[in-house]
Design a protein around this nucleic acid. Structure first.
Length: 432
RNA sequence: GGUGGGGUUCCCGAGUGGCCAAAGGGAUCAGACUGUAAAUCUGACGCGCGAGCUUCGGUGGUUCGAAUCCACCCCCCACCA
């Protein structure tokens, strides 16, 4: 990044959706270390991969010598951001939010460096400066700077205002003011002059730059990152089993790795630019090499490796790759008994059949309860298509009531391991 | 508080007394083809291996029969006050 400015690199990666006064921002960043912030609201006990782009962007700025502040929304999380949300959200109680705030702090901290001298990162919580703010002060000192006419005109709340059958409460409508206030406060306390966020945050960010100018008399900048979309138009970051979380407790490193590995060709190179620190040149070279070769491209495996390492570390990546290798290479017979135990430790989904009543329980129940499918119907469908494979042997509907036979010790690897494959991608280890 | 419009299976959205477990689309899952890709085609898609069971905001009612009709209640939206 020596021969290019940070903004040029971000731009080459397609990571800039919008910014305020581009030329001035470029100059501002060139003048020295800038303090910037990005907010993360606690809407669950973990962030998901949707937050990865801004999180990595903070790191990109830090690598370029700037000082990142990660804001967790202890206050805004209590309100709920209405931006581009079709419906009013239900409120979470404050102990829940407080608990989530703690979890997010830990996650956010993984990505930025807290010990790098002048530009060490900091984590801040907006509850710290809003908790004791009283209504009248808020209305007089902050609220007075906002025009409802302008707020209503924001694209981010338009569908809530215009759409038949929906509305917006005053609570959520005020969210924008709270976030603007955060920026103004951080500007005053930390000399923060740049806020970044997803493109849905544009309205909230510009609100903050305005408020900072009015209350502090300071120039403040904003930059938004693009919303990640997939080429086929489906939602990024969701699968059948739900959201891809950053917490290993909610999405195992193995599942996380698999998610990236299954990226389509059309998205892979873009995702490499968004989600990794490989240089644009390296990625372009990879794309050329893949195009020149027949068969399977390398992009997905590079992507999966890089991102898994970023989020779950070298250990998580090793575990994920170990499972992948064992399950998809096709030669399970090479695995030792200790290998099976290691796979369980690595996070291969597994369950014990010790307590199960195999004589009475159909496979449909057994496999769906183990989490291989959401309902027995799906198992049934798979059985009818011979898509259930136990230790390499196809099972059909006829075996449904014969769980005791299927899982009999003499059929198990080392007398007790049964690797069940559902379709091409789902695996589950049963142990007796 | 008044008037009008709404609340249907994950989402959107048909259905206005039996032919409704409820059209259609999307999402998702599985099969074929492939490369653990995309596109395409096929199947599944409330729950249950099955017999069968439980649904259409809630509670009661009318009826042989209700998502559909009636009463009351809850929630959402628009306009008025």
């Amino acid at each position: 990044m020596t021969d290019k400015t940070l903004l040029q690199d971000l731009n080459a990666r397609g990571l800039i959706a919008q910014m305020t006064s581009e030329d001035e921002l470029e100059q501002h960043l060139a003048e020295g270390s800038v303090t910037l912030y990005c907010g993360f609201d606690p809407t669950a006990d973990s962030l998901h991969i949707g937050s990865l782009v801004p999180l990595l962007a903070l790191k990109r700025f830090q690598q370029a010598g700037h000082k990142p502040l990660a804001l967790v929304g202890g206050a805004t999380g209590l309100i709920g951001d209405p931006s581009f949300k079709a419906q009013e959200r239900k409120l979470n109680d404050d102990s829940t939010v407080a608990n989530w705030v703690e979890k997010l702090k830990g996650q956010v901290s993984q990505f930025i460096d807290f010990d790098s001298g002048d530009n060490s990162a900091e984590v801040v919580n907006n509850l710290d400066w809003t908790r004791d703010l009283d209504v009248l002060t808020f209305l007089r000192d902050v609220g007075k700077h906002f025009s409802v006419n302008q707020m209503i005109a924001k694209e981010s709340v338009k569908q809530r205002i215009d759409r038949e059958g929906e509305g917006i409460s005053f609570t959520e409508f005020t969210y924008m003011i709270l976030q603007s206030f955060d920026y103004q406060q951080l500007n005053a306390s930390h000399n923060c002059t740049l806020q970044i966020g997803g493109s849905d945050q544009w309205g909230n960010i510009t609100g903050g730059t305005e408020l900072t100018r009015r209350m502090n008399g300071n120039k403040a900048f904003g930059l938004t990152l693009p919303l990640i979309t997939k080429s086929d138009g489906t939602k990024f970051g969701k699968t059948e089993s739900g959201t891809i979380w950053l917490s290993p407790n909610k999405t195992s490193p193995y599942a996380f790795y698999q998610f990236w590995l299954q990226t389509s060709d059309a998205d892979a190179y873009g995702f490499l630019k968004y989600f990794t620190f490989l240089s644009v040149e390296e990625i372009d070279a990879l794309e050329k090499a893949d195009a020149a070769r027949d068969g399977r491209p390398e992009a997905q495996s590079v992507l999966a490796r890089e991102v898994t390492r970023l989020v779950h570390g070298e250990e998580g990546l090793t575990a994920a790759m170990r499972i992948t290798e064992a399950l998809f290479s096709g030669n399970l017979s090479d695995l030792s008994e200790a290998d099976f135990e290691q796979l369980q430790l690595d996070g291969l989904p597994s369950s014990s059949l010790a307590d199960a009543d195999l004589a009475e329980t159909p496979l449909t129940t057994l496999l769906s309860e183990a989490g291989m499918a959401n309902s027995g119907k799906q198992i049934k469908d798979a059985l009818q298509r011979n898509a259930v494979i136990v230790n390499g042997v196809e099972k059909g509907m006829g075996d449904n009531m014969k769980a005791a036979e299927v899982f009999a010790s003499e059929h198990g690897t080392y007398g007790r391991f049964f690797l069940v494959k559902l379709g091409k991608k789902k695996h589950h280890l049963f142990v007796i």
